[in-house]
Write a protein that binds this DNA or RNA. Structure first.
Lengths: 188, 188
DNA sequence: ACTCAAGCGGAACACCATTCCGCTTGCTTG
DNA sequence: CAAGCAAGCGGAATGGTGTTCCGCTTGAGT
């Protein structure tokens, strides 16, 4: 139907896009995804309109930045499932998840925000939930994981990871949370 | 030392305090605790300065409104523990918690917000965590609950309750969350 | 009835997200 | 290589927050 020819984007537009992503990535990491849009634009050295032109919604920016991280988290599942028992894969994946939660500050807030809007474009949550479902299915088949828990359920259960304050106590608290939830999963 | 005589508050001040609390309670229940301060003042029929004079921080208002609810949730623990087995008490308390989470919309957001600030005045979180510790201690003694889980841990694990969108699917999702977490607790 | 500080209302200020619009500049075409 | 034009730009403007300031009002003690 509407076969828009669509010229290639101008080089300066591409450069600006990059500058914005760099600026946002830094600030998301250091101060969370709630930083002011104006500030992101200012530090990127572009006008605020340029920011909005490239990323009409704040979530577009968030999604663009975290999409690959989350995809890699999803990919790790296949990797783990291919090389260990389902139960070990679950443990290993939990460790990887923890690592991400600690390193990529703001990722949690982003995930929470994504739930609100029915964000179809880059369904990062969906990617994660799919991963979880794979882990759960494998564990179920092996008989090491209870029958009636879904990926959605697991995603909800680990919400604490995104809600806990990220300070020096975070790693320990997060580990304890995963231990408790995984214990529930394994209570066959 | 500073024994300020402190006159009794004026009658109109008291009335305004009441009007503000009524207005806020209604709006918190119907739209969450994020409603505009100006709107709360407007609907209460007072100036915005009056609102801030009585409740300097938004959380003061939130705490004032939910304090009694949370205290009652805490009281229920003693009641349940006095009349049933620790394990049944846990189940019953979970049901009560769920009921509150559904009814008192905004309570969750309030609890999350309280974690940020080291809010000593009305430590509503502490009340809840104390309750959980009682339940856990009783269960541990009865041998029905694992040893190494604290009230803090449990509070974290049920974070999902405050994070899930409150819609028609909420009760089911929340129930499943509690089931999973409780299963973990019971995996002795 | 008189006084005066406790208490009030709303304007004022600062900050944020988002939109608008006149100007600049990369790319294409002759 | 030059010229034209639309893609893209920046920053000012708009409309909405939370929070403070300050001159006026009024309850309550004398």
């Amino acid at each position: 139907m509407s076969t828009t020819p669509a010229r290639a984007p101008r080089s300066d537009a591409l450069a600006n896009r990059g500058k914005i992503l760099d600026s946002a990535r830094k600030q998301f990491a250091s101060e969370g995804t709630e930083v002011s849009m104006n500030e992101i634009a200012r530090r990127a050295g572009v006008g605020v309109a340029t920011l909005y032109r490239h990323f009409p919604q704040r979530d577009d920016l968030v999604a663009a930045i975290y999409a690959e991280e989350l995809a890699s988290l999803g990919g790790a599942v296949d990797e783990f499932l291919a090389s260990m028992t389902p139960d070990d894969a679950l443990t290993a994946w939990g460790a990887r998840l923890l690592e991400y939660a600690i390193t990529k500050r703001g990722l949690g807030a982003a995930l929470l925000a994504m739930r609100e809007r029915g964000d179809v474009r880059v369904d990062a949550r969906g990617v994660l939930i799919d991963s979880m479902n794979k882990l759960l299915a494998a564990g179920r088949e092996a008989g090491t994981i209870v029958d009636d828990v879904t990926g959605e359920d697991l995603m909800t259960a680990i919400s604490g990871l995104w809600v806990l304050p990220v300070d020096e106590q975070y790693p320990d608290r997060a580990r304890r949370l995963l231990a408790l939830v995984f214990a529930g999963l394994r209570s066959v």
